[in-house]
Computed example of a mutant assay.
Amino acid sequence: MAKFTLYLVRHGQTYYNVFNKLQGWSNSPLTQKGIDGAVQTGKRLKDIKFKAAYCSDLTRAQKTMSLIFDQNQTFNSITPIVSPFFREEFYGYFEGLNMDETWYQAGAPHGTPTFADIIDQYDMNTAKDFLKEADPFHMAENAEEYWHRLQQGLDLITTNPNIEDGDSVLLVSHGNTLLSLVDRFSTPGQFDLRTRPANGSITKMAVDGQQLTVTDYNK
């Protein structure tokens, strides 16, 4: 397996982002700010020769990927791999509902009434478990279900035989997915996980076989 750099980009701003609603597997279109931001992200990455590219199959991520591709001539020779493995966490009953109110319902019974409180006292996996517990249908993904899905996506990347030492690879995904990756693959306390990655932001990971290490967050 190769040693390479994985660039993780959060999709551009959507209307649900503006309205402070959980999107999960739901979708809302990119705002004009989101479109412009994705173009700017593409320009920041335009001189990087990517060997492979991956993307969530949700519309907001695919649109962001397309706008990034338009700014980078090296993408002419590759086709992005689009997969549901890279989707955002599924929020079940809470899809499309107010983010702050949802995390209050999930965390308050445990003495953590905000998302930041949950992260301060626990971690991202606990946040997922709390949400599934609070979901009256129990359809939201808990940590085990979430990582079973996402790990299949990570395996797609790390086992790609075309990726060689020193290559660069792009992944366009989602806010809580990036937070989850940073939570799992960084040193505790290295990054402030109470700060969500900005739309269009770039996070970088060093990949060595199946060993992943976060090197930059939310740039």
Rank of each mutant, 00 (worst) to 15 (best):
I81W: 15
V82E: 11
S83L: 07
S83T: 12
S83E: 08
P84I: 08
F85A: 12
F85I: 07
F85R: 11
F86T: 12
F86K: 07
R87E: 07
R87A: 05
E88K: 00
E88M: 03
E88V: 00
E89A: 15
E89M: 14
Y91G: 03
Y91E: 08
G92Q: 03
G92A: 03
Y93S: 10
Y93D: 12
F94N: 03
E95M: 03
G96F: 04
G96T: 14
G96Y: 03
G96Q: 03
G96C: 11
L97C: 10
L97Y: 02
L97V: 08
M99S: 12
M99T: 15
D100Y: 06
D100C: 09
T102Y: 01
W103C: 04
W103S: 01
Q105E: 12
Q105W: 07
A106N: 12
A106G: 11
A108E: 05
A108G: 14
A108S: 08
A108L: 12
A108V: 04
P109G: 01
P109M: 05
H110N: 15
H110W: 00
G111F: 07
G111Y: 10
G111C: 02
T112G: 00
T112N: 09
P113L: 02
P113V: 11
T114I: 02
T114H: 07
F115M: 13
F115H: 13
F115A: 08
A116Y: 00
A116G: 06
A116C: 04
A116R: 04
D117W: 07
D117K: 07
D117Q: 01
D117G: 09
I118H: 08
I118S: 04
I119N: 01
D120P: 14
D120L: 06
Q121D: 10
Q121I: 03
D123H: 03
D123G: 13
M124G: 09
M124D: 01
N125F: 05
N125R: 10
N125Y: 02
N125M: 11
N125W: 00
T126A: 06
T126F: 00
K128H: 11
K128R: 15
K128P: 08
D129I: 06
F130L: 02
L131A: 10
L131W: 03
L131C: 12
K132F: 06
K132P: 09
E133Y: 09
E133C: 12
A134R: 01
A134Y: 04
D135P: 10
D135W: 00
P136D: 04
F137E: 12
H138D: 02
H138L: 01
H138Q: 05
H138T: 01
M139W: 14
M139F: 14
A140Y: 13
A140E: 00
A140K: 01
E141D: 12
E144W: 13
E145H: 07
E145M: 12
Y146H: 13
W147P: 11
W147D: 06
H148K: 15
R149W: 00
L150I: 15
L150Y: 02
L150G: 10
Q151K: 13
Q152I: 14
Q152H: 14
Q152N: 09
L154F: 14
L154D: 11
L154P: 09
L154A: 06
D155T: 15
I157Y: 13
